[in-house]
Design a protein around this nucleic acid. Structure first.
Length: 475
RNA sequence: CGAGGCGUAGCGCAGUUUGGUAGCGCGCUUGGUUCGGGACCAAGAGGUCGUGGGUUCAAAUCCCGUCGCCUCGACCA
């Protein structure tokens, strides 16, 4: 029984999760490492996931009146330094271009770590009147942050993302936008990624450099660690003042706009892998799966088998299913394992015995269950199965997450919680010292502020709790 | 930058203690038999042992230097 040692390697998923993760990502040919440390080469199968995410996200942006645009990769250093907190936060991880055209540049250019500054500088030119507002734009782009340690998708030096940037006439409207996009992200995670998330406001310590308030969605990985899967920022007038984004209001007064920004990145692909993956490899949520169904012919040289497979493929494709037919020379067993590893939600087995009976065999990746399906009704059955898989994947992940959120009243309880792979809900007085103390004591950080304050006392100092915080170890 | 580990065929590794013909598994090529859970047989191709120097009749192996990568910390979507 010759086996790739991959299957054996991933057998100890629970004890060595990050290693499992890296192995799965590389072996399933989602990515390769790039020549520069921390960069990734996304291969077609991996990129297809991203394209599906883009398609779904663009639908939602369109519905919110947001248009796509594109801004430059290089940002003059002087732009970055205009907003004090922003430059302080990003300076350590910015890559800088000092030479070009064989000469030293008069002003260094940084490779965008995020585009608030360059977009802000353009917005200041484009906006004059309240009639120009709101400005609602998004760009799909790559950004670069020189990270010290990297992991494919979860933390790479260069990554792909979307960054939305909006300008509004009032504080209320800007804040409403910030929260609205947070809700869009949450709904997207649920519907398209089958991924439950916790959303809420970030603490001062965890907020975006330059923001007034940051909101995030946190997803729970298999090992109980938290992954920030998306953020939205209310920037107030910090950037509009730094970049002179002013408009003449109805009352004739010149006012600064209120801006927001929000983004999700290729990290979402890592989140999918870590949320749903199992010992056999990936489990792709149907909505963003590059391949939704794979047809594996059995005894393909037997009369009529390949013809039937091709006919079935054409029918499913016509019904809007992303389907492929694996007509390679590999044995059926090999194909089963290969496509399971790649997380294809539905496998369709079709052989001589099925043909005779006028049916085929459906295998669902999430539960590993097999069911029979009448060939005549394949389109409806497969589509229904795909949507059932999506729902069940969400329900299971949600149940898993809910079961692993616990409350704590003492630091020891908190430590025990995060040691056991739990999210821990606890009271917090609101001061930075107590937040740092939790990090020091339990290596856990405040992921989000809970929607309601359900705790009376701060878990660290015992003073009155200002809010309830979800603490967890994070990627 | 602090602490560990690893560089030998495309990938994963053995060989290093005790110097003596460059090995194994997977993958790849060709031909044949197979195909309902990672098939089998046969014949092949593929190597500056990370790199520079030293010791020696002889170095993947011993000594000194150097480069790169990985894991764990500090930083982060």
């Amino acid at each position: 029984m010759a086996k790739d040692n991959f299957v054996e390697q991933i057998a100890d998923i629970d004890t060595d999760f990050p290693q499992w993760y890296t192995d799965v990502v590389i072996k399933t040919k989602l990515v390769d490492y790039g020549p520069v440390k921390g960069t990734m080469v996304i291969r077609p199968y991996g990129y297809a996931i991203w394209e599906n995410i883009q398609r779904e996200m663009n639908d939602r942006f369109r519905a919110a009146g947001i248009e796509n645009a594109y801004f430059p990769l290089l940002i003059p250093m002087s732009f970055m330094t205009k907003e004090a907190e922003h430059v302080e936060g990003f300076a350590p991880e910015v890559a800088v271009v000092t030479h070009a055209g064989g000469e030293k540049l008069a002003e260094p250019l940084c490779i965008r770590p995020t585009s608030e500054t360059i977009i802000g500088s353009m917005y200041s030119k484009w906006i004059q009147s309240y009639r120009d507002l709101p400005v609602l734009m998004n760009q799909w782009a790559n950004v670069m942050r020189w990270e010290k340690t990297t992991r494919p998708f979860l933390r790479t030096s260069e990554f792909l993302w979307q960054e939305g940037h909006t300008v509004h006439a009032s504080e209320e409207e800007a804040m409403e936008m910030t929260l609205r996009m947070l809700a869009v992200y949450e709904e997207f995670a649920k519907t398209c990624l089958a991924m439950p998330v916790l959303t809420g406001r970030k603490t001062e310590k965890e907020k975006f450099a330059g923001a007034v308030a940051t909101f995030g969605m946190e997803a729970m990985m298999h090992d109980g660690k938290s992954l920030q899967a998306g953020t939205t920022h209310y920037l107030g007038q910090n950037f509009s003042k730094a970049f002179d984004i002013k408009f003449l209001d109805k009352d004739g007064a010149l006012k600064y706009g209120y801006t927001t920004s929000f983004g999700v990145s290729t990290r979402l692909i890592g989140a999918i892998i870590m949320t749903h993956g199992d010992k056999r490899g990936l489990v792709m949520p149907p909505v963003v799966a590059p391949v939704q169904a794979v047809i594996v012919p059995i005894a393909s040289k037997k009369e009529g088998v390949m013809e039937a497979c091709r006919a079935l493929k054409d029918r499913l494709a016509a019904a809007g299913v992303r389907v492929i037919l694996d007509d390679s020379e590999n044995s059926p067993g090999w194909k089963f394992n290969e496509w399971e590893m790649k997380g294809v939600p539905v496998r369709i087995e079709l052989g001589p015995r099925d043909l005779e009976a006028g049916k085929c065999l459906l295998f669902r990746r999430d539960t590993l269950e097999k069911t029979e399906c009448a060939l005549a009704d394949a389109e409806n059955t497969v589509r229904a199965l795909l949507s059932d898989i999506s729902e069940k994947m969400y329900e299971r992940a949600k149940a898993r997450m809910d079961a692993r959120i616990v409350d704590a009243e003492t630091l020891d309880e908190l430590l025990a919680g995060v040691d056991g792979g739990k999210f821990v809900r606890a009271g917090w007085c609101g001061c930075r010292e107590c937040e740092d103390k939790v990090k020091e004591f339990a290596q856990a950080t405040a992921r989000v502020l809970d929607k309601e304050n359900t705790h009376e006392k701060c878990i660290v100092c015992g003073k009155k709790a200002e809010s309830t915080v979800i603490f967890a170890r994070a990627y």
